[in-house]
Every structure is written in C-alpha cells, then in structure tokens.
Design a protein around this nucleic acid. Structure first.
Lengths: 221, 221
DNA sequence: CCCATGCTTCGGTTTGGAACGAAATGAACC
DNA sequence: GGTTCATTTCGTTCCAAACCGAAGCATGGG
C-alpha cells in the first residue's frame, strides 16, 4: 500500500524557503559558514542554525569545524544532483529584474553542479565526447577518450563517470569522478572561471579557443 | 543570488504526507477517483479535495470528469519520473510489518514507473538491450534492436526512448515512448501482470521464459 | 586575561495550513 | 421527482514549525 521511501519526510526539508536558499548556495560544491548561509537565506543566525541542524540529521549536509568557524557543505554529490533534478520540475523562474534575468541566463549556459559541469556547456561537452566515441554508453571514458582528452590538454586521472540530469537542458550530462576531474582541470587551466557570487562559470577566451579546438565545441559567448 | 527555479514552492506540494501518499498512488499511471485517493491518504474526502486542488493548480495532476466521478491522474510522465528520482534521496523505508517488507521487495524487483518498467527488471532489461547493441547511447532503438525485439515477440511501434533514473537500483533505465511501448506489450502478452493493489508487477512463468529466451534476462522469481 | 566574534541553545510569539464536519452542488439511478 | 452517492466549498479548530532576541559556549586575537 505504501510506497517504499518516505517522500514527504524528505520533501519537508526542501519545502522551506530559507532551507532551499541555503541549499542553493551550497550547490556550487563549496563550503560556507553558518553566518554566510544565514545571510543567503535572509534569516538570523539562530534561525539558520536550526535549519542546518535539520539538514545535518539525515545527512544532506556535512560540517567540519575550523577554529571558531563551522563550514557546511553538501554531504554527497547525490544531494546536489537531486537538487538539480528537482529544479527541472519546479515552476519557471519568476525573474523580475534585468539582473536576475542575466543571472539566470549565465546559470543556464554553464554552471557547477556540485563538482561537475552542467548547463548548455556541460551538455554540449558530454554530447561532443559521445559523438567522438570517447565516452561509452555507461558514461565511462574509452581508451580513445583518455588519449583524446590528454591530447586536448585535459589529462584526466579518472575514467569512471555517471549520468546526471540537467534541469535547464533536460538532458543527461557527465558527472561522477570523471566529470569532477574534467571540471577541475578546466578551472585549473583557466579555461573556465568561477563567478564568486554564484555557481555560474564564465568561459575565458582561452577556454573558448581550446574547447573549440580540442573538443569541437562551438560556444557563442 | 537566487537560483533560478523556486525549489521551495515545488517541494511544499510534496512535503505533506497526505499529498505524497496520493501522488504515490497515482504513480502507477492509472486514474483514480478523489475518494479512492482520500482513502489511500487516510484523510476525509473534503481534505483530499483540497489537496488535489493544490496539485491541480501547477499542473502536477490532471482531472477528467466521467459522470459523477472525477478521475485524477498524473498530468505528465515528467512528474512521475521526478517522483521516482526523488525517492532515491528519501530516507530508507521504515518497513515495519512483514507485509510491508514483502511489498517493498516486489516494488524493487519490478514496477511501473508511470508507464514504463522500473526496478531490477527494468534496469536489467535496459542493460540487456544495450549490451546487444539494440539500444543506442541516446536510448533510441537501433535497426538491429527493432528487428530483435520483433523476433522476441515485442513488435514495438516506437523507436524513441529516454533515460529515467531508478531510485531502488540507482541506475538509468528505459523510459519515453519506447519504454511505454515495451511495458504495454509485456502486459498485453501476459509476460508481466499488475498487482491490483500497487504498482508492482509480477513476472508470469510465460514472461520468465520469453524474457529469458528472447532477451537473455535471467530473473530469479 | 579579557574581549570580540561565530555559532548554538532556549523561550516565547506568531502564523500558515492541515484537519474535520456540515452543508451545497451535481450526476445517476430507481 | 426523490434518493443516493461522489465531490467540492465553507467555517472552525488546532498544531507544527519558523522566526527572533537574549543568553550561553566556544575559539582566537590583542
């Protein structure tokens, strides 16, 4: 009679605007202090503390104390991927100001989904890798793919990937260890650059050239 | 600052036990009357009516009146797939009675995810099709796949499929028009049989033989 | 050693919404 | 036409939980 997992219990955690805002802030994979998250959610630190405790209990977020700061982060990539997937069903953005519109557009173009690339760029990259036969149907890197990426300037250490659903594109894209490696390398090589205020990523001129040359991605800036 | 879609607004709909129970009941793709859903949720019809109105407004469910009955169903496959994906993050089943345990086990083995197969059988079927090269990496049926399925007794009309995430197996499985066709054919041919009380599916002896012979699935009953 | 800072715990207030029952609506059946 | 049944609307009650401010622990710096 009952379905197996308790949907409602999990949804309650997301159903509060303050908690949702804090989770959204954590979605870039970084760690944040409780006060920063309180500010992001627009509530007092004491309120935020209660929310974080609730997220901590079922293991959605993890905390590591560093001195008098307590840094919170998403506990597992699965949480981030789930939140991304959830966003796909959520009602369309009620973007009001031009600034919000711009922010939404850049998120849709390229962003971090916890630790790997998502948005148009993430999906295009995944498709490019598949079309070249570099990525197998199980989202693992083929021999040719490992060689090809090395030649393109992305010497990934991991071969194993997973699929992750993109809310803006409604397409699968590359996640897992391989996806994380790829994103790390793109950031380290300054092909992509983080927006310090959000989890959006900007494509540098260098990145535009290299991604186009090595992987055949044509990305209008 | 804000992430694009309003996560909290959508999650609120799921966050109520009664609404979650009704959605769970609708997850088998069938239509149910308001009273049946009220009973499934353990609330009075008047309460259920209010909940259904809330689910109706953003288009999660649809209603078609038939005489004095009003049949509710999930409005789109996307809602069902989203709920299935959500279940993957929800806390593990608090199964109490042996009956609940059995029910959970049969759901994990084989069930309808709105209109296509999920659970161990759904995942195994998808993997089997992929290993034979019948299913391309984009989850579309290849020429060989169309011929092979016809030979196996499953003359699907659709070729286009999509990936859907399975909460119990944490693997992708086949959805979309092709997935629906496949499930319909298996049910029509009495290879699989619906549990009238839930969305679990039972593998008939005939189905066990044919799925094994035609598709190489070895499924312990 | 004392103070500033980050964070949590505690008490008290407030409110959104989930619940029910009663009554209204509308279709179907006799 | 009256009765029955499915469903919705309305009015009311009630509780969970979200919030804040004050107080209590920490840690780190001066």
């Amino acid at each position: 009679m009952n379905r197996d997992p308790d949907l409602a219990a999990a949804a309650v955690l997301l159903a509060d605007p303050a908690r949702a805002a804090m989770l959204g802030r954590l979605l870039d994979g970084r760690s944040w202090t409780a006060t920063e998250l309180a500010k992001a959610a627009g509530v007092q630190p004491s309120t935020a503390s209660a929310h974080l405790a609730r997220l901590l209990e079922p293991g959605w977020v993890a905390v590591h104390p560093r001195g008098r700061f307590r840094y919170y982060r998403l506990a597992q990539p699965a949480v981030a991927e789930f939140l991304e997937a959830f966003a796909g069903l959520a009602p369309a953005a009620p973007a009001r100001t031009p600034g919000e519109l711009r922010a939404g557009a850049s998120l849709r173009r390229c962003r971090l989904c916890y630790d790997h690339l998502a948005g148009q760029v993430g999906v295009a990259l995944t498709r490019g890798l598949m079309e070249r036969g570099w990525l197998g149907s199980g989202f693992h890197l083929t021999e040719a793919g490992a060689a090809g990426l090395r030649a393109a300037g992305l010497p990934v250490a991991e071969r194993e990937g997973r699929a992750c659903m993109d809310w803006s594109e409604r397409r699968l894209h590359l996640a897992g260890p391989l996806g994380r490696d790829l994103a790390d390398l793109c950031l380290a090589a300054a092909w992509l650059q983080r927006d310090p205020k959000s989890r959006a990523l900007w494509i540098t001129p260098l990145g535009q050239e290299r991604l186009g040359a090595g992987l055949g991605l044509s990305i209008q800036s």
